[in-house]
């Protein structure tokens, strides 16, 4: 298959970028999108041109490293997949394809299609954990957890932390990401002691880092490769409201 690519090239964080045209020729239909870019890059190197920088590692949709906006959609067309899981058979021969980095103020471009998403780590550091000193844990089966609750916690925990939700949101909100962690830990009995402080600290950190508010566009849910449900955002809002009243009560 052959494609025309329009790829965002940008030398570094502080210089202007632009779209550059490339031809992708003789691409096998079974190649993945990233393998297509590999082929284009090998061609560029042979012509002594700098390869297109893009992030990837596992290439099986779990590490969250790949992060492309393809034809205007974070992770490209199709439901519940990352950029690395997109296969060229999905496109038509001769298609023109636009490739850009994830766009958000909180994700500055570092080069071409790579961004700095460390703001996501900062929010986990603010409270996205359960304090459990190594070696101090009780016997694992001492607290049974109903399957329904455990399964729901797993659904939230499945977030791969890629940041597509932020890139897709018109407000660059990280509410889906934060709500997934707050729900995962808040649903489990082990997460109860820090439930209040966790939600408050994480939301505060999110605001401080410059992520926007959620105004119910649901674009996040639509692009999420792990199919994290936007209903977790409602759960977050409830937890946050509850936490605010509790904290007020403690302060009085």
């Amino acid at each position: 298959m052959n494609f025309k690519l329009k790829v965002w090239r940008q030398k570094g964080p502080n210089v202007a970028g632009q779209f550059v045209d490339y031809e992708a020729r003789d691409i096998p239909a079974d190649a993945s999108f990233l393998e297509m870019l590999d082929i284009v890059n090998e061609g560029l190197i042979k012509r002594n041109e700098d390869q297109i920088a893009f992030d990837s590692d596992c290439r099986e949709g779990i590490c969250g490293m790949c992060s492309l906006v393809i034809n205007g959609i974070a992770h490209g067309p199709g439901k519940a997949k990352t950029s690395c899981q997109l296969y060229m058979r999905r496109f038509k021969d001769g298609d023109t394809i636009w490739v850009e980095p994830f766009r958000a103020i909180t994700f500055p471009v570092v080069r071409d299609l790579c961004t700095n998403r460390s703001a996501l780590d900062r929010m986990i550091e603010a409270g996205g954990y359960i304090t459990a000193r190594t070696g101090s844990a009780p016997e694992a089966n001492s607290i049974p957890i109903g399957k329904v609750v455990a399964d729901l916690a797993m659904e939230a925990a499945a977030c791969i932390g890629c940041g597509a939700c932020v890139a897709a949101c018109p407000n660059s909100s990280a509410m889906l990401f934060v709500s997934a962690k707050v729900s995962h830990l808040g649903l489990l009995p082990q997460g109860q002691p820090e439930r209040t402080s966790r939600v408050v600290s994480m939301v505060r950190k999110m605001d401080e880092l410059g992520f926007g508010n959620c105004t119910n566009h649901y674009e996040c849910e639509a692009v999420c490769p792990s199919e994290i449900s936007a209903s977790f955002i409602s759960r977050l809002n409830r937890d946050y409201a509850r936490a605010a009243t509790r904290q007020a009560a403690v302060l009085v």
């Binding site: 954990y129 844990a137 009780p138 109903g146 399957k147 455990a150």
Partner: peptide, 22 residues
């Protein structure tokens, strides 16, 4: 055996049976 205890305490959502056990 300590690993499983540790991970459950951290909130690792291992698969469970209907009765709530691992």
């Amino acid at each position: 055996v300590n690993i499983i205890d540790q991970c459950v305490a951290q909130g690792v959502p291992f698969a469970r049976e209907y009765g709530g056990l691992l």
